[in-house]
């Protein structure tokens, strides 16, 4: 893995579209794999990205998933035009969820999405305005000594 400059890109995510859910994250995972990153780093980034993508699909009308890869880090930014989160501290609690029943029956909405994003990131920021939307920024450091 020798990245000189920043590699970046973005995906538009449509809310409610379960049939294509995860495609953007899968593509980002492929990009990271093709750059030859350590397997565990790829896995962490993929999981964090997938949860962010699912949150856009489950809770919002639309959003953008962006990635930025530099020699030092992977940055994932998920920005949505959703309802926003009223109480971020509560939303960060494991198992807390506002997902409707149909989402739970699809295998999601168990209240582990945000905790999962945080768990797999080295830096995690969330910014939300009720009625406007939510932005999540996740950074995963690239340990260049491995692989």
């Amino acid at each position: 893995m020798h990245i000189k400059d920043t590699i970046e890109g973005s995906f538009h995510i449509v809310g409610g579209d379960f049939s294509r859910a995860g495609e953007a994250s899968t593509e980002i995972k492929s990009i990271l794999q093709s750059l030859g990153f350590n397997k565990e780093i790829v896995r962490r980034a993929a999981i964090a990205t997938f949860e962010a993508e699912m949150n856009i699909i489950i809770y919002t009308t639309a959003g953008i998933l962006r990635y930025e890869i530099t020699p030092e880090r992977i940055k994932i930014i998920a920005q949505d035009m959703g309802p926003g989160i009223e109480d971020i501290e509560l939303a960060m609690q494991e198992g807390y969820s506002t997902a409707p029943d149909w989402v739970r029956e699809m295998g999601w909405g168990s209240g582990m999405g945000l905790p999962n994003m945080k768990k797999n990131s080295d830096e995690f920021r969330i910014d939300s305005v009720v009625g406007e939307g939510t932005t999540v920024e996740m950074v995963i450091y690239l340990d260049n000594t491995k692989d």
């Binding site: 997938f50 699912m54 739970r104 999601w108 168990s110 582990m112 999962n116």
Partner: peptide, 9 residues
């Protein structure tokens, strides 16, 4: 499990 976030976690 049937809950996908649990798998990921």
């Amino acid at each position: 499990t049937d809950l996908m976030s649990e798998v990921l976690y």
